[in-house]
Simulated assay, not measured.
Amino acid sequence: MSPTAGLGLKPQHFAEAIACPAAGLWFEIHAENYMVDGGPRLAMLDALRGERPLSVHGVGLSIASAEAPDPIHLNKLTRLVERCEPFLVSEHLAWCSLGERCFPDLLPFPRSSDALRLIVRNIDIVQTALRRPILIENPTVYMELDGHDWSETAFLSELVARTGCGLLVDLNNIVVSGHNLGFDPTEYLCELPGHAIGEYHLAGHSRDSAADLLIDSHDAPVADTVWALFDEAVRRFGCRPT
């Protein structure tokens, strides 16, 4: 896959997506929107797959959970990946479920050595089921947590080394977390293992002025600070599907 530009697919934009003549265009889908047995969404996906490359971006594997990935969820994801043959599969470095309880957010965790061991196990389970490496996306963080043994960039680098996974580097997430936690986004970027980066994400964020937080809301144009960090990423690591 050449390092071209993609768009997140919304079903309401399907007609425009399949008719768009742009060279090199690809589409990213959220896996959980298509993990069904049939119906119009899969028909839409099959039609688009015949015209454009796809990437699959998961939001529900809960890869940073202390529990192993839910086998029913993972089986559905495996079937979807087999059906649409995406050129990339990715998931977030976060957790969103505990037992049978699911939470409507991607939640943070202490980057302890115990957490590292469990997440390595979870990534291995997923990659074995899918029979391919996946990309892990750096999270958005809103507050400091206690209990870290690793910096975020060192943790991501160690995941790459131990599992053979790649990284989906979300430049917006870096800017948002950098503002909220007070670190330099460019320094963070420089600490990542460039050879493992398989994709970049760009998105818009909003500001909660009362709390002086940036929110990863995806409801605004990409900010100038994110574009500048993207330029630095391309200069430092080269082009990637974006």
Rank of each mutant, 00 (worst) to 15 (best):
I29F: 07
P71K: 12
W95G: 09
D114Y: 03
L54H: 04
N122Q: 04
C96D: 01
P3K: 08
G24P: 10
L118Q: 13
L9D: 07
S90W: 01
P86L: 04
R52Q: 03
A68Y: 00
I125D: 14
N75S: 12
F103H: 08
A66K: 01
D37H: 11
L118H: 04
C96R: 02
L77D: 06
P40N: 00
G8E: 10
L98E: 08
D37G: 11
K10G: 05
A66N: 05
L7S: 12
L98M: 06
V81P: 06
H13I: 00
L42W: 03
Y34C: 09
M44H: 11
G99R: 13
R117A: 14
A115D: 08
I63Y: 09
A115F: 10
F109G: 03
D105R: 08
C102L: 09
L45N: 06
H13T: 11
I125W: 14
A94H: 04
E85C: 09
G24Y: 12
L48K: 11
N33T: 10
E85I: 04
V56K: 07
L88P: 00
G38T: 02
L42P: 07
W26T: 13
R101V: 10
L7H: 09
R52D: 03
N75E: 07
C84I: 11
K76F: 02
P104E: 06
F27E: 03
L7V: 14
H30E: 07
P71C: 13
G58I: 02
S55E: 03
L116Y: 05
A15E: 14
P69L: 06
D70W: 04
L107M: 15
I63M: 15
R111I: 11
E32S: 13
Q12I: 00
P71V: 12
E28F: 00
C96I: 06
H30R: 12
I18L: 15
E16M: 10
R52P: 00
I29Q: 08
L88H: 07
V59F: 06
A22E: 14
I123N: 06
G99F: 13
P3D: 06
V81L: 05
G58T: 12
G24S: 13
A68S: 14
V81Y: 01
W95M: 08
P71Y: 13
E91I: 09
V56E: 03
H57F: 02
E16V: 01
R49I: 10
A66C: 00
L106Y: 08
V59I: 12
V59Y: 02
I18R: 15
P3V: 02
V89F: 11
I18Q: 15
C84T: 05
W95F: 14
F27A: 06
G6V: 09
R83A: 05
E51M: 13
F103S: 11
R83D: 07
G60Q: 01
S65F: 01
I72E: 14
I125M: 15
S112H: 07
G39Q: 05
L106T: 09
D114V: 04
M35S: 05
L98N: 02
S65G: 10
H92Y: 05
P40A: 12
D37L: 10
G6I: 08
L74H: 01
F27C: 00
K10S: 09
M44I: 02
C20W: 14
